[in-house]
Amino acid sequence: MQVKELQSVFSFEKVVIHALAPNLYQVSVMMDGEEVFLLDGKGKFLTSHNKQDLQELFKDKQVGAMVLRHQSAYDEMVGQPTRESTNCLEVPIGTL
């Protein structure tokens, strides 16, 4: 979904701010049970070094939940076997 399309959508089930690295974030939204990443004007994943900038995109929207998601590479780094389930942490955060 292009970021400019946000203007025409007023309600989201869930907004996910993905923590990729220290101070690097991407954003996806859940709509009709499907997770969709936001893209910039050039068709690339929308990223920011400030998670509040991404939260600000939804300040006038109805959001069921907003979370910060981090997927850890720790198991892989210490030689643990591949998990059958995800190694993901989601923390609820508020909207601005």
Rank of each mutant, 00 (worst) to 15 (best):
residue 47 T to E: 15
residue 80 Q to Y: 03
residue 35 E to Y: 05
residue 27 V to Q: 02
residue 78 V to Q: 04
residue 1 M to V: 13
residue 83 R to E: 07
residue 92 P to R: 04
residue 39 L to F: 02
residue 32 D to F: 10
residue 85 S to H: 09
residue 35 E to C: 01
residue 43 G to T: 09
residue 42 K to M: 10
residue 75 D to V: 00
residue 95 T to S: 13
residue 90 E to Q: 12
residue 48 S to K: 08
residue 8 S to W: 08
residue 80 Q to H: 04
residue 25 Y to T: 09
residue 24 L to K: 15
residue 60 D to L: 10
residue 82 T to L: 11
residue 85 S to M: 07
residue 43 G to M: 05
residue 60 D to R: 11
residue 86 T to M: 07
residue 84 E to M: 09
residue 51 K to P: 13
residue 34 E to I: 14
residue 24 L to T: 08
residue 37 F to H: 11
residue 87 N to P: 00
residue 41 G to M: 03
residue 76 E to W: 03
residue 27 V to H: 02
residue 21 A to C: 01
residue 70 H to I: 07
residue 70 H to D: 02
residue 26 Q to I: 00
residue 55 Q to R: 15
residue 75 D to W: 04
residue 57 L to E: 05
residue 55 Q to M: 15
residue 29 V to G: 10
residue 6 L to Q: 10
residue 4 K to H: 13
residue 40 D to P: 03
residue 91 V to F: 10
residue 3 V to I: 15
residue 35 E to K: 06
residue 40 D to M: 04
residue 65 A to P: 00
residue 29 V to T: 06
residue 68 L to F: 06
residue 75 D to M: 02
residue 46 L to V: 12
residue 30 M to E: 14
residue 19 A to M: 08
residue 22 P to R: 12
residue 8 S to K: 15
residue 39 L to R: 11
residue 67 V to M: 06
residue 20 L to Q: 11
residue 19 A to E: 12
residue 46 L to C: 08
residue 84 E to N: 06
residue 9 V to R: 15
residue 22 P to E: 10
residue 64 G to R: 08
residue 62 Q to V: 15
residue 66 M to D: 02
residue 23 N to D: 14
residue 25 Y to H: 05
residue 24 L to I: 02
residue 59 K to P: 00
residue 45 F to T: 03
residue 74 Y to N: 00
residue 12 F to D: 03
residue 96 L to T: 07
residue 45 F to H: 08
residue 64 G to K: 12
residue 87 N to T: 11
residue 51 K to T: 00
residue 1 M to G: 11
residue 71 Q to I: 10
residue 3 V to M: 11
residue 18 H to C: 03
residue 96 L to H: 09
residue 6 L to R: 06
residue 34 E to M: 11
residue 3 V to F: 04
residue 88 C to W: 01
residue 87 N to W: 01
residue 36 V to F: 06
residue 77 M to G: 00
residue 86 T to F: 04
residue 46 L to W: 08
residue 4 K to N: 13
residue 84 E to Y: 05
residue 53 D to M: 05
residue 43 G to D: 05
residue 1 M to A: 12
residue 53 D to L: 09
residue 71 Q to F: 00
residue 94 G to F: 02
residue 48 S to N: 08
residue 85 S to L: 08
residue 95 T to M: 14
residue 37 F to E: 11
residue 60 D to N: 15
